[in-house]
């Protein structure tokens, strides 16, 4: 907690405006002081929450540090609560594979969709067009899990995986028995779930492309598509990368839908058809039943890895997105 004085003094130092009249006694002053200090405390709460998250994760994961090094923890594949052996590699692998495949599936669709909304569709429809994307974002993840478990998984098992195995079976990714549950199912559902995130942010950054630049390209005889490639894409590239990173962060941390369709089998397989496990899924499945303190600590350790990764990803993404969105302001002012 910052000290009380710091909280109260800071606004005064910022409003350098009225420095020398800032501290007049008067009827309004007490109320203003009270209001300002309340606001500063409320703002500081965000930092407190951030601190609480880090602190509690660290405390919960501490017992693990006794006989596990960080490197050992993330490179060990064995996860055996009975024997107190905890290695995170299997889960890291599952999380990474499903997230990456979901990005491969979602990013082209998301960018095409964002271009359609911002560039090709009639501008009047803009608000209406984002509706389905917003609806996708509003569906709770457990409902996606339910849908994935009873609709997507059987469909993959019956149609998609046999077909892929038949035609692309020479690639190790598409080998093995089609069981439905597994990396591919998780990736597909994650792709649907991260689509709204990527689209929402991409649309925002694409909208910041100065209209004049695009019109200039069109005036030079470029077709609409060429104008997009010449202006919108370069202008918003960093922001789109940021949007993708935000989507990746969401995919890494998504719990319920993945838990329900990944198969929950702690193994590392090259094939996307195989069942696997992910970081959030193992936390969701084992945390409530973990009895030994080391087991809880190991799960909290997984949570800490997840937190650190998503934190860095989000921070990087925000820097990129904010830079693009600030762009035009810098030009005009």
């Amino acid at each position: 907690m910052p000290s009380r004085e710091a909280i109260i003094d800071a606004p005064a130092s910022e409003a350098a405006a009225a420095q020398h009249h800032a501290s007049h006694p008067g009827t309004s002053n007490l109320g203003d002081r009270l209001f300002n200090s309340t606001l500063w405390i409320l703002g500081a709460m965000i930092l407190v929450v951030a601190g609480l998250i880090v602190l509690n994760l660290a405390v919960a994961a501490r017992p693990l540090a006794k006989d596990h090094s960080l490197w050992g923890f993330i490179t060990e594949t064995q996860w055996d609560p009975v024997e107190d052996r905890f290695g995170a590699l299997t889960f890291l692998y599952g999380t990474l594979v499903t997230s990456m495949v979901s990005l491969i599936l979602a990013v082209p669709v998301a960018i095409g969709l964002s271009l359609f909304i911002t560039q090709f569709a009639p501008p009047k429809l803009g608000r209406v067009l984002t509706m389905p994307v917003e609806l996708l974002a509003a569906i709770p993840s457990v409902v996606y899990g339910l849908w994935g478990l009873f609709i997507v998984v059987p469909w993959l098992r019956a149609s998609v995986e046999p077909w892929l195995g038949k035609h692309l079976g020479w690639i190790p990714l598409f080998q093995g028995p089609p069981i439905g549950l597994g990396y591919l199912a998780s990736s597909m559902i994650l792709a649907v779930m991260i689509l709204p995130t990527i689209v929402a942010v991409s649309v925002e950054v694409m909208k910041t492309t100065p209209e004049a630049t695009r019109e200039a390209a069109l005036a030079l005889g470029a077709t609409k598509w060429e104008a997009v490639m010449m202006t919108v894409i370069p202008y918003s590239r960093a922001g789109i990368v940021g949007a993708v990173l935000l989507g990746l962060g969401r995919a890494l941390g998504e719990t319920m839908a993945v838990t329900m369709v990944i198969g929950n089998s702690p193994q590392i397989s090259a094939s996307l058809f195989a069942a696997g496990y992910s970081l959030p899924a193992v936390i969701a499945n084992e945390f409530a039943e973990a009895t030994s303190s080391v087991h809880v600590a190991a799960l909290a350790g997984l949570g800490l890895i997840l937190f650190a990764t998503t934190f860095l990803l989000n921070a990087g993404a925000r820097v990129l997105v904010n830079a693009v969105q600030r762009g035009p302001r810098r030009v005009s002012g």
């Binding site: 509690n56 941390g253 969701a284 945390f287 799960l299 997840l306 934190f311």
Partner: peptide, 18 residues
């Protein structure tokens, strides 16, 4: 902004410890 992207399962662990 960054916290709004923290996975909800992680927040679960935090509330557990807290």
């Amino acid at each position: 902004e960054v916290l709004s992207g923290v996975p909800s399962i992680v927040v679960g662990i935090v509330a557990y410890a807290l």
